[in-house]
Design a protein around this nucleic acid. Structure first.
Lengths: 335, 335
DNA sequence: CTGAAAGCGCTTACAG
DNA sequence: CTGAAAGCGCTTACAG
């Protein structure tokens, strides 16, 4: 037995397919009685409208696509959760294409989503305005997450890395650590660059006499370890170290422990991201938390707004705040 | 300018739409020259076949749906990665609906996917055969992940929790810990039940004289802590403790430390899952690892097989192995 | 090899 | 309120 179609329901309820269609879509334009009879017939036949037929005629898929890079565990799942919850609340489906690391892969993914989605959510450090122009019809609503793209044509939703980093540096300074060093993230990474700027801005503003002290890193634990050793080898050891992400902070912590230093008594430490591990290292790691679920949720809601109001020009870049999480490693309680 | 349709391409290439269709689908039934002319016309017009129209006529969506519960970070992202990679390799799209905790929610999600997917991947501790019969057409291929369902009608792919737990218990016994206690997971949880059985089986087989010693837990860190205290209060303290998951092992470790016990010298400890935190607690936690990416990949590939060969009766339950990860906490090196 | 035509399952003006 | 009919963009027998 093949699935029932609108024709079957029409026959069963002894009405035209037009009436069935109306009844199934809210019932306006049909009497309550007719509608009820149709509903019952539909139930009897286990009728479910064919999605593709509907998409074809309405030009609406009720689906949004999410294009994501090869993301690390926690971040990925939180982001999807936020997007998924918001999508479900609005009756939208979610087509996911993740684990992309190359631009070509991303282009293929975006093209293959063509016609299957009403809008697109894109998180990618490498996608720029040129890529979007080349691979997407300008009619497709797009929301960019954590992107450096600055174009009136695309909506952008960013995490306020700058403010988060700045706030943490300020916190460290206020806790009495005069010299705060920074372990940078990978070059070309948008988040890393903004955290770097936040560090510099806070130092310039709140500790104009202290040196800007930046050592390189690449977001890996290993690079944090190397950075830690490098910092310890400096003539004037910093009082506090702010790593551009938690994994580097964890690596750095290992280096400090190996050198026999006590954290935070001898040297303070802070990271960025608030990954689960931050709570389990000892001392527990102070860090900056991003509400990733909210990031996903906001992104989807902004996109949904674009779908409902296509004429509305995309909002200028929006920003989502971070919050400082004070634990043991930054030595705030010792002041 | 609306998107180009097959008609536009036909006109541009001066052929019928039938020929365009053939050319776009591999080109069999058209001369190479005609095909080339059509391709060029299509490129000029930036033609992309309308997905919905194609679905409607071919009855194929080239999409698979994934229904997932409210999963914890790492597991979720790894699973999706495995599914996504395998799907992309086969040119399949991935429609995700996650974060379900109720059966009603799951039912609604599954129904709304109807007609949008060619097959379904379902991970859920609560979905049973009755649910599937009630909410899915029996023609839709389904692969169940980590499920207790035993029905010839559905394919099932499980993690070999039993073998993994059993192997860890055996390892602890071989390392010289005569009395191994077990911290159980939540009642009704499929993984937890299998790990429990694995513990019992290994004890019965390899340490028939030692007592089966099980204390309750619910997979939370907090419950692990309580279990740890409970174990310490026993008349005969166990030599080793095997927790049904890592989070409980971490909680248990805290209880041991508070009591002034050294792990593994005074008491050994092991968990299950190999979450990232396992590497960062001290001592580092021995555990059982599940290759989650492989779980996702295998599931998708099995489902894809079902799609290509619908007549083939679903394979009987398959199982994916685990591996023991020996770190400091189980005291294996001290034997 | 190529094309005209039917049809996939729906929605929506257009009449009545 | 209700129905007949056109049409969304494609694929695929069926002829030629």
């Amino acid at each position: 037995m093949a699935a029932a179609t609108i024709k079957d329901v029409a026959r069963e309820a002894k009405v035209s397919v037009a009436s069935v269609s109306r009844a199934m879509n809210g019932g306006s334009g049909v009497t309550a009685e007719t509608s009820l009879r149709i509903q019952q017939a539909a139930d009897r036949l286990h009728y479910i409208p064919h999605a593709a037929a509907r998409m074809l005629i309405t030009r609406r898929t009720n689906t949004i696509g999410a294009l994501l890079p090869d993301l690390y565990g926690e971040f990925f799942s939180e982001l999807i959760r936020g997007i998924d919850l918001a999508a479900r609340a609005r009756g939208l489906h979610l087509l996911v294409s993740s684990s992309h690391d190359g631009l070509d892969e991303a282009a293929a993914a975006v093209r293959s989503m063509q016609g299957r989605v009403d809008g697109l959510l894109i998180l990618s450090g490498r996608v720029d305005a040129a890529f979007l122009r080349a691979n997407l019809p300008k009619t497709l609503p797009v929301v960019l997450l954590n992107s450096a793209v600055k174009s009136a044509a695309y909506s952008v939703l960013n995490v306020d890395n700058h403010a988060g980093a700045s706030a943490m540096v300020r916190h460290l300074l206020k806790a009495g650590h005069a010299n705060v060093a920074f372990i940078a993230g990978p070059e070309g990474n948008f988040d890393a660059a903004q955290r770097d700027k936040g560090y510099r801005a806070a130092m310039t503003r709140y500790a104009p006499d202290a040196p800007i002290n930046i050592v390189p890193g690449d977001f890996s634990e290993e690079s944090g370890y190397r950075a830690g050793r490098e910092l310890l080898a400096q003539k004037h050891r910093p009082d506090a170290v702010f790593a551009a992400n938690d994994m580097m902070a964890v690596g750095c912590l290992t280096a400090f422990k190996e050198a026999g230093l006590r954290v935070p008594q001898d040297i303070a430490l802070a990271g960025f991201d608030d990954i689960p591990i931050a709570r389990y290292v000892s001392p527990t790691l102070s860090t900056v938390r991003v509400r990733i679920v909210d990031l996903g949720r906001h992104a989807l809601e902004h996109l949904a707004g674009l779908l409902e109001n296509p004429d509305q020009s995309p909002a200028t870049a929006q920003t989502l705040g971070c919050e400082i999480v004070v634990r043991e490693s930054c030595g705030a309680s010792t002041t």
